[in-house]
Amino acid sequence: MRTKYSAREIACLLALFLTVLPPLAAVLYIFVQALPGISFEFIFSMPVRRGIEGGILPAIVGTLWLMFGTTLAVLPIGVGAGIYLAEFAPNNRLTRLLEMALVNLAGVPSVVFGLFGYTIFVIMLGFGPSILSASLTLAALTLPLVVTATRWQTVSTIIMPCARTGVVTGTLLALARAAGETAPILITGAAFALPNLPRSFMSRFMALPYHLYISVTQIPAMPPERMWATAGILLFLVLTMQVGATIWREQERRKKQW
């Protein structure tokens, strides 16, 4: 096995390092900056004075509600569609249309999902600005993730046990997206600095990414360490699930290579 690299190949490898460096450095930097702002009070108490004091508990809880609601809504359709595409979809025009729809759905801008969710869930179906409307909007957004993850793992004959890997990966990815997206919840129910926790799916809600966005852009008096802490907690939540998805898939892949 040759491991000697020519000058051009080294330039290539250098590009790879420069490519992974910014996101890795970003993650590290945020965690370091976040630490001073994170305390028991910050995580477990209600916001005071528009979040300048107190904590962000409702934003954390709101994000957990969104993750739960999104998963509940996206799993049946996403897994079903994934199995359908892997197992039953005939090789015809309609299936190709479905494939195109899937690729394009994955490419629809998140703010457009917001417009869609607002029109159908908030207004037409009368759910109002609520966790329900936001979760359903996020479910539409994460649908392609779950479908794709499920179909690749679904192999003929024994459907469910094999599909499980894909379902777990897809679910984790969907959870991460539901926790991290801002634009779709902007107009479907997210609110800033609510004094209490959501009581039901019909409640308005705080969410970590929305809280970060408003803190950064619209609250000049917000102490920076609170923004970093919010970003750190959000990032931790999202990356935990991304790492989980990656590890899970690598492990299953290895198992399959007997």
Partner: peptide, 12 residues
Amino acid sequence: IFEVTAGIPSVV
């Protein structure tokens, strides 16, 4: 690494 960092939220 790419798979994981692909999940960093755009607001971050």
